[in-house]
C-alpha cells in the first residue's frame, strides 16, 4: 500500500510537471475537476467503509470463504457477478470494499468477476449517466451485449491462475 502511494504521488508529480510545461498551465482546471470528484467522497467513503465493516461483522465467520472463496467455483463467480453489478459507488469506494473481501478470503477469479460486473453493469452508473445520455434502447442493447462479460472474465481468470500455478 505504501508502494502504491509512492507510485501514485510520482505519477501526480509527473502530470503536474507536464501541465507546467504547457503554455496554458491547466493547474486550475485540473484541481477543479479533482475537487468535483473528491467532494461527494468526503461523506460517501467513510460511510461505505463503515457499512462494509458492520456487514462483515454480521456475516458468519467463513461465509465469504464459503461463498466467494477459491473453492466456490462457478457458483462463486456467478454470485460475485451479481454482487458486483449491484455494488454502487466509484473506484474510491469499491476498491477498498474489494480489499475487505480479499482480507476475508474471497478468491481471485470471483473478485475479478465482481470487478468486471461492477465495471460493465454497475446499475447506479447506468441509471445516473448512461440512461440520461444514451437513452433506453442503446442502454438496453449495451447491457445485453455486456451481461456475459463478468462470467467470461471470471472463468478466464480462473483458468489463467491455474495455468500459472501449474508452473510456467
Amino acid at each position: 500500500m505504501t508502494l502504491g502511494l509512492v507510485t501514485v504521488l510520482l505519477l501526480l508529480g509527473l502530470l503536474a510537471a507536464l501541465a507546467q510545461r504547457r503554455p496554458d498551465r491547466p493547474h486550475r482546471a485540473a484541481l477543479g475537476t479533482g475537487w468535483r470528484q473528491l467532494r461527494p467522497l468526503l461523506l460517501r467513503l467513510p460511510l461505505a467503509l463503515l457499512a462494509a465493516a458492520f456487514l462483515i461483522t454480521l456475516l458468519p465467520e467463513e461465509a465469504v470463504v464459503d461463498y466467494l472463496g477459491e473453492s466456490s467455483g462457478w457458483q462463486g463467480v456467478l454470485l460475485a457477478s451479481l454482487f458486483g453489478g449491484l455494488l454502487p459507488g466509484g473506484p474510491a469506494v469499491s476498491f477498498p470494499l474489494v480489499l475487505v473481501l480479499i482480507d476475508e478470503g474471497a478468491g481471485t477469479a470471483q473478485l475479478i468477476a465482481l470487478l468486471t460486473a461492477w465495471s460493465v453493469l454497475a446499475f447506479h452508473r447506468v441509471a445516473a449517466h448512461e440512461l440520461p445520455t444514451l437513452g433506453g434502447r442503446y442502454t438496453l442493447a449495451r447491457l445485453l451485449a455486456s451481461a456475459p462479460l463478468p462470467i467470461v472474465a471470471g472463468a478466464l481468470a480462473g483458468a489463467l491462475a491455474r495455468f500459472t500455478a501449474a508452473g510456467l
Binding site: L18, T33, G34, A92
Partner: peptide, 13 residues
C-alpha cells in the same frame, strides 16, 4: 486524494 488529482490532470492534458 492523489487519485482524483491525477484524474483531473489527465482530463486537462
Amino acid at each position: 486524494v492523489a487519485a482524483v488529482l491525477i484524474s483531473g490532470y489527465a482530463q486537462a492534458l
